[in-house]
C-alpha cells in the first residue's frame, strides 16, 4: 500500500476536492483506494460525498470500534475513513494516539493499493505527522502568490524538522498546463536551492466551474461531471500514478527508530 499525504500550506486551494476526485480517478482505473479524511479543520470528505457518517475515528480512538468497521463505501470500490467534525480534534491527539492510528492504518495495507490522507492545511502537528509518515507528500497549491509562499513555508518546515526531502506538486486552478509548469519551475528552483528538497511535477488541474457546481450538489465532480475539464485532468494524472509516486518511504527515522525500540522491548 502506498500512502500519500495530500497537504497544502494554505486552506482553500482545493485540497480536499483533489483528494476525493483523484481518489475516484484512481479507483476508476482499478486501484483499491482508501481516503482518510484527516482534515478536521474545515471541509470533510464525507460532506463532499453527501454522506453523513454514523461512526467516526473518535469511536476507534476511544476503542469503541475497529478501524475496518467505520469505513464508508463510495463509488468504484473507493472507501473513506471518516474523521469526526468538532468532537475530536486530531490536533489534540497525543503522540501515542497518533502512533496507534498509524499502526492501525498500516494494518489495512493488504486491503488497499493506495491510502490518500487528506491532511489539514498549515502546520499543525497532525499535518506534519501524517506528512512525515506517508510514503509520499503531495503539495497542493494554486498559482496564487499566497498559496505558493504558504506552500513553500510548509515544505520548509517539513524539510527542516521532519527530514522530508522530496514532494509531488499539484497545481490546482490553472488556466493551462504552461501555468502549472511555471509554478512548478519556481517552487522547484527555490526549494532545491534553499532547502535541498526535490519538487516533482505531479499535475496541473484546470480551473473549472463544474467543480463548484458539484460541491453545491454534494457530489464529487468526477462522478457528476466525468467529462468536465477538471475530471479529465485528474484522470490523466491518475494514469501517471505509478511513474510519479515512486518513493517508498521518506527518510523519517521513525521506522528505524521504532524497530529499534520494539526490538529492545522484545529482548526484555
Amino acid at each position: 500500500m502506498k500512502t500519500i499525504a495530500i497537504t497544502s500550506g494554505k486552506g482553500g486551494v482545493g485540497k480536499t476536492n483533489m483528494a476525493v476526485n483523484f481518489g475516484l480517478a484512481l479507483a476508476n482505473q482499478g486501484k483499491r483506494v482508501l481516503i482518510f479524511d484527516a482534515d478536521l479543520g474545515l471541509a470533510n470528505v464525507d460532506i463532499l460525498f453527501g454522506y453523513s457518517c454514523e461512526h467516526t475515528l473518535a469511536d476507534v480512538i476511544e476503542n469503541r470500534m475497529q478501524l475496518t468497521d467505520i469505513l464508508v463505501d463510495a463509488p468504484d470500490g473507493l472507501k473513506i475513513l471518516p474523521a469526526s467534525s468538532g468532537v475530536l480534534r486530531l490536533e489534540r491527539l497525543s503522540m501515542s494516539q497518533l502512533a496507534s492510528l498509524a499502526d492501525a492504518m498500516e494494518r489495512l495495507s493488504s486491503r488497499f493499493d493506495v491510502l490518500i490522507i487528506d491532511t489539514g492545511a498549515g502546520m499543525t502537528d497532525s499535518v506534519l505527522f501524517f506528512s512525515s509518515v506517508a510514503d509520499e507528500v503531495m503539495l497542493v497549491t494554486t498559482p496564487e502568490p499566497t498559496a505558493i509562499t504558504d506552500g513553500y513555508a510548509l515544505v520548509k518546515v517539513l524539510a527542516n524538522e521532519y527530514e522530508v526531502k522530496s514532494l509531488v506538486l499539484l497545481v490546482n486552478e490553472v488556466l493551462d498546463n504552461k501555468e502549472a509548469h511555471t509554478v512548478h519551475k519556481k517552487l522547484s528552483a527555490v526549494c532545491g536551492k534553499h532547502l535541498g528538497v526535490e519538487i516533482r511535477f505531479g499535475a496541473g488541474i484546470l480551473k473549472d466551474t463544474h467543480l463548484e457546481k458539484a460541491v453545491r450538489e454534494r457530489k464529487p465532480v468526477y462522478i457528476n461531471y466525468p467529462t468536465a475539464p477538471v475530471s479529465q485532468s485528474l484522470r490523466n494524472f491518475a494514469r501517471t500514478f505509478d511513474s510519479v509516486f515512486t518513493s517508498q518511504k521518506n527518510e523519517l527515522a521513525q521506522k528505524g527508530f521504532w524497530n529499534e525500540v520494539l526490538a529492545r522491548r522484545e529482548q526484555q
Binding site: 521532519y162 527530514e163 527515522a253 521504532w258
Partner: peptide
Amino acid sequence: NTFRLDAGFLAERIRK
C-alpha cells in the same frame, strides 16, 4: 541526532 517527532515517540514510549 534526532528529529522532533522521534524524540516525541521516544518520550511517549517511556511515559507509557
